[in-house]
Amino acid sequence: MFSLAPGVSLEATLARLEAGRHENADLAAAAAELRPLVAPARASTVLGDAAARKEIERAVAALAAQAPPRLLRELVNHLPARERPLPARAEDLAHYGRYKLLVTEGASEIRLDDIVMGSVRGRGFGSSLLQELCRYADHRSLPIVCTMMTDYPDLSRDASPEEYKAAQRTAERRLAGWYHRHGFRSSRPVDEWRSRTDLRREPGPHERKETT
Rank of each mutant, 00 (worst) to 15 (best):
A67G: 08
P69M: 05
R70W: 10
L71E: 14
L72W: 09
L72D: 09
L72I: 10
R73W: 01
E74K: 00
L75K: 00
L79C: 00
A81P: 04
E83H: 07
R84F: 01
P87R: 11
R89H: 12
R89G: 13
A90H: 05
D92V: 08
L93N: 08
L93W: 01
L93Y: 05
A94W: 01
G97D: 02
L101K: 01
L102P: 04
V103A: 10
T104R: 15
T104D: 11
E105S: 10
G106F: 15
A107D: 13
E109S: 12
L112C: 11
L112S: 10
D113Q: 12
D113S: 12
D113K: 10
I115E: 06
V116F: 03
S119P: 03
V120D: 00
V120F: 08
R121D: 08
R121G: 09
R121P: 01
G122T: 03
R123L: 13
R123N: 03
G124H: 05
G124Q: 00
G124C: 05
F125M: 01
F125T: 02
G126D: 07
S128A: 15
L129A: 11
L129S: 08
L130F: 07
L130P: 06
Q131H: 11
L133K: 12
L133F: 06
C134G: 09
R135H: 14
Y136E: 10
A137P: 10
H139M: 08
H139L: 04
R140D: 06
R140M: 09
S141D: 02
L142Q: 03
L142P: 04
P143T: 14
I144T: 14
I144H: 10
I144W: 06
I144Q: 10
V145L: 09
V145G: 10
C146P: 07
T147K: 12
M148Q: 13
M149P: 07
Y152N: 14
P153C: 09
L155P: 00
L155C: 13
S156E: 12
S156P: 01
S156W: 06
S156H: 11
D158V: 10
A159H: 05
S160I: 14
S160A: 14
P161L: 07
E162W: 09
E163I: 15
